[in-house]
Simulated assay, not measured.
Amino acid sequence: MSACTLAAISAFPVASANLPRRDPITVNRQDSFPGASPPILTAKAVVLFDAHTGVILFRQNETQPRQVASTQKLLTALIVAENGDLDKPIVIKRSDAMEPPLKLGLRSGETYTRRALLTAMLMKSANDAAAALARDNARSTAAFAEKMNRRMVELHGNTSHFVNPNGLPLNGQYSTARDMASVARAVYAHPLLRGIVNCRTYHFRLNNGKIKILCNTNCLLKYSFCNGMKTGYTRGAGHCLIASGKWKEREVIAVILGVSVRSRIWKEAQSLLIYGLGMRPEEIAAARLVSSSRARAHAAAFKPKRLFWRW
């Protein structure tokens, strides 16, 4: 397992069991820090909760069905990771390579491991990697979508329906902030996935021998208190982000859906994590990762150690 992978944490109860269903906006003042004010948000739907207990710190329209874009790749990743055998090679097919619009440029006939494609999908939101993983897992996109829907029910997500593994808009595909919170907690409890979403860069070796350095699409990773998860955007969904954070002994996860301006998604997610973690101004100022050498060391730590498959 990669040096970047974090240690396993004990499994905690399903998130949705503690997610209220009513009232458009609720702030849990008992669990928030004295003097802390909840952030003002433009997001259409939000849930902020304690990663261990599932206690809600802030919620807004969390049961509203809507598109969630590429954040649903977290569910795709969970199913693939739980299936195991991640060093098994996958031969790319033409249908995988034709997935629009964000992709690695995979070509038919190339071979990559499940682990490499899983990492690329989570960090760079590669739709061709998602298509290959889904086909490998269930033989077709439709069959994999059925697995996604069954797994969501197991996670007690009751207001979701998935049609593809990547979050590209299709009729009949939707979820909620509450349901995606359930997925996020399951991913956070999975040591391999939690390690991947916390990586800032990854060396992806193409079949021609060239290395493509993939930078994580999650800009909040420049702050040391952020430790993952997944971005998403389509015109219908708006800008979406599921972000997790840790400061001292406290760990929280925020689900933010439907922000209209890209720059706002980072500000709103950052303010939610800071609010949930109870960070003081001087702690926030010291939390930014400023060393490029640290970023390079982080990338080197997550290089694949075994390249025995044909790339």
Rank of each mutant, 00 (worst) to 15 (best):
A3M: 02
C4H: 14
T5K: 13
A15S: 06
N18F: 08
L19H: 12
L19N: 11
P20K: 15
D23N: 15
V27Q: 11
D31I: 07
F33R: 15
G35K: 14
G35I: 01
P39T: 12
P39R: 14
P39H: 08
I40L: 11
T42W: 10
K44D: 05
K44W: 01
K44M: 00
A45E: 07
V46E: 06
V46T: 06
F49N: 08
D50L: 09
H52C: 01
G54H: 08
V55G: 04
I56N: 11
F58P: 10
T63D: 06
L78G: 09
V80I: 13
I92F: 03
I92P: 11
K93L: 01
K93G: 04
S95Y: 03
A97K: 15
M98N: 11
E99N: 13
L102Y: 07
G105F: 12
G105H: 09
L106S: 02
L106R: 14
S108V: 14
E110R: 15
Y112I: 11
L118I: 10
T119A: 03
L122W: 14
L122E: 09
K124T: 10
K124E: 06
A126I: 02
A126N: 01
N127Y: 09
A130S: 05
R135C: 07
R135V: 12
N137M: 00
A138D: 03
R139S: 11
S140N: 06
S140L: 03
T141M: 02
A142T: 15
F144Q: 03
E146K: 15
E146G: 12
K147S: 00
N149T: 06
R150Q: 07
E154S: 14
G157F: 02
T159I: 14
H161Y: 07
N164R: 15
N164A: 09
G167Q: 02
Q173A: 01
Y174P: 02
T176K: 13
A177S: 01
R178L: 05
A181P: 03
S182G: 03
A184H: 02
R185S: 10
A186Q: 05
V187G: 08
Y188N: 13
Y188H: 15
L192F: 10
L193A: 00
L193D: 02
G195D: 09
R200Q: 10
T201I: 09
F204M: 05
R205T: 07
L206D: 06
L206A: 02
K210E: 07
K210D: 03
K210C: 02
I211K: 15
N216E: 00
L221Q: 00
K222G: 08
S224I: 10
C226D: 04
G228T: 11
T231L: 02
Y233M: 09
Y233H: 12
T234S: 07
G238H: 13
L241K: 13
I242E: 05
I242V: 12
G245D: 06
R250Y: 05
E251A: 12
V252T: 10
V252Y: 04
V252N: 10
G258W: 12
S263D: 02
I265V: 09
W266D: 09
E268R: 15
E268S: 08
Q270D: 05
S271C: 00
G276Q: 10
M279A: 12
E283Y: 08
E283F: 01
I284A: 08
A286Q: 11
A286P: 00
R288P: 11
S292Y: 09
R294N: 07
R296A: 00
A297M: 10
A300P: 05
A300E: 04
A301H: 14
P304G: 08
K305N: 08
L307M: 00
F308K: 15
R310L: 06
